[in-house]
Amino acid sequence: LQFYCSNVIAKAWNAVCPLVAKLKRFYEFSLRLENALRSLLEALTSPPYAPMQHLEREQALAKQFAEILHFTLSFDELKMTNPAIQNDFSYYRRTISRNRLNNQQLEAENEVNNEMANRMSLFYAEATPMLKTLSNATTKFVSENKTLPIEDTTDCLSTMACVCRVMLETPEYRCRFTNTDTVLFCMRVMVGVIILYDHVHPVGAFAKTSKIDMKGCIKVLKEQPSNSVEGLLNALRYTTRHLNDDSTSKQIRALLQ
């Protein structure tokens, strides 16, 4: 029996180590995304151009911004539907902690030691870890660039949201989409910039004074098949800051129920 248990434990450990190594690579990638996002925001908001002028002049950078948001929402949707990620990582942490108490060190700790495991644990504890990283990066960008009017950042985000909404709801644009992946790309980018806007704007994206047409954006999402947008609607419900503020109309709350 002891041999059988040891064999099972060894198999479980050998199975979980490659998964933890992969989780580490995604965590480190999130740090690179954070730096990239801040650089892109600086390029897309710096004077003397208005947000729309920036997006027209710097289309390649705007596309990279959109690609980051697309990946972020894709990753977080997968993470939310895979609870095994945190279960496996919790098992890994318990194992290395138990071995440390026994003055043993496992080979896997050379790649993911206790300090790294603690940072990764905080990252994966978030419901939407990549989006949380980008939201924090955007907030930090605004707070550190005090000479840059906050409107320069929020106008850039609201302009991108408007462009995506128009592309999704206008037949002339929709007929150019050759596959559903393009529609999903636009939806993810739209939701991503709405969430970033809501984190950095003083009253958020849902207030009447918001420059984002939230009713139109939500309506566009709800016109799509429910299996492709439920994760995006949940992101608006649970990762925004101002949805439950008094300034949010009952109609918008009802749309997101």
Rank of each mutant, 00 (worst) to 15 (best):
Q2S: 10
C5H: 13
N7W: 14
N7G: 02
A10S: 12
A10F: 07
W13F: 10
V16E: 04
C17E: 04
A21W: 10
L23Y: 15
F29W: 05
L33M: 12
S39T: 14
L41P: 05
L41M: 14
A43E: 07
Y49S: 13
M52T: 12
Q53A: 15
K63T: 01
K63Q: 12
A66P: 04
E67H: 13
L78P: 01
M80S: 14
N82Y: 05
P83T: 00
R93L: 10
R94M: 13
R94K: 11
S97C: 08
R98H: 11
N99I: 03
A108P: 02
N118S: 10
N118Q: 11
M120F: 04
L122N: 15
F123P: 07
T128V: 08
P129C: 06
L131G: 09
T139Q: 05
T147F: 03
D155E: 12
L157G: 01
M160C: 09
C164W: 00
M167I: 06
L168E: 11
C175M: 12
R188F: 03
I194H: 06
H199W: 10
A205C: 06
A205R: 06
A205F: 02
S210V: 03
M214E: 01
M214Y: 02
G216T: 05
K219M: 05
V220H: 02
V220A: 15
L221P: 02
P225L: 07
N227Q: 14
L233P: 10
A235R: 14
T240I: 04
L243Y: 09
D246G: 07
T248Q: 00
Q251H: 12
R253F: 02
A254M: 08
L255F: 06
Q257Y: 07
